[in-house]
């Protein structure tokens, strides 16, 4: 099965493992991820201002490129996923923006939100299926207690992201079960790690990341997994708790027995 794939800037630099283990795992699962040519950075954050349009064009270009190929667009980084989905929603709801984008891009076939954006986790749940995934596991986690850290961007705003229940999500917990781990549910799993505030107010990021990690630790976690490079950075670097934090794709590749491959 073929999908367009949007890695985003961080997966080419500081978060290479997130990308690499996803590609290896996809291959093992019979999924063909075709990286979009000439994709541009999504900007990292979706601007909530309706009249901020230029900064959303790179996302529209990626969405339109996938449409041209007739493929769904797979994302991996939580931030890219959030931006692409919200911009895609704008391209069906924000008339002023739609007009301006069409006027500016002058594409023969104007883009109107046709592309389906799916996160790699949704690919596992909805295309592969967690039951099928479980059958492919060769190195199960052996009941390891793993805490899913959703953070903000995968789930919210839920009426646009539509991945899962924003207050009581299960997708990553179901993933953990499928690869043989025991999910740890804790109250801070969908609260903010501090995000980009780490850049100018490190102490603030330390406070927020520590709260998340303490909450996971208190509920018995031996390890935390995430889909977001900035969450991983904040928890690893700014969280004052010694718990390993990994990308979910690393555990996936390990479970599928492809982690050592290149």
């Amino acid at each position: 099965m073929k999908f367009s794939y949007y890695p985003g800037c961080t997966l080419k630099t500081k978060a290479k493992e997130l990308d690499k283990y996803a590609r290896l795992s996809a291959e093992a699962l019979g999924i063909d991820l075709v990286e979009l040519e000439n994709w541009q950075c999504c900007g990292g954050a979706y601007s909530m201002a309706k009249d901020e349009i230029a900064s959303k064009l790179s996302s529209v270009r990626a969405l339109a490129a996938a449409k041209e190929k007739g493929q769904d667009l797979v994302t991996l980084c939580s931030a890219c996923h959030n931006v692409l989905k919200q911009v895609n929603n704008d391209m069906t709801t924000n008339e002023d923006m739609i007009n301006r984008v069409h006027n500016y891009m002058k594409d023969e076939e104007p883009y109107n939100g046709e592309t389906k954006v799916i996160h790699f986790l949704e690919l596992l749940r909805d295309v592969v299926g967690f039951d099928k995934l479980k059958e492919k596991v060769v190195n199960p986690l052996g009941g390891k207690k793993v805490a899913a850290y959703y953070g903000c961007l995968l789930l919210r705003p839920s009426k646009i992201m539509a991945m899962d229940n924003p207050e009581n999500p299960t997708i990553i917990e179901d993933f953990i079960r499928a690869i043989g781990g025991e999910p740890v549910v804790y109250p801070y799993r969908n609260e903010c790690c501090g995000g980009y505030i780490a850049l100018e107010d490190k102490n603030n990021a330390i406070k927020k990341s520590t709260l998340v990690m303490e909450s996971a630790e208190k509920n018995g976690a031996e390890e935390i997994i995430t889909a977001c490079p900035l969450c991983l950075y904040n928890l690893n670097k700014n969280g004052a708790v010694e718990l390993p934090v990994k990308y979910f794709t690393e555990l996936l590749a390990e479970a599928l027995g492809v982690k050592g491959e290149n």
């Binding site: 950075c41 990292g44 931030a79 995000g195 980009y196 780490a198 850049l199 977001c228 950075y233 690893n236």
Partner: peptide, 25 residues
């Protein structure tokens, strides 16, 4: 946030995502 302020704010692990987001914001 100005571009010339960035080098002092970086550490070797900081993901690009943080920098582009801060600029966007």
């Amino acid at each position: 946030l100005k571009a010339d302020m960035i080098p002092d704010l970086l550490d070797e692990d900081l993901p690009q995502q943080a920098i582009v987001t801060a600029f966007r914001k």
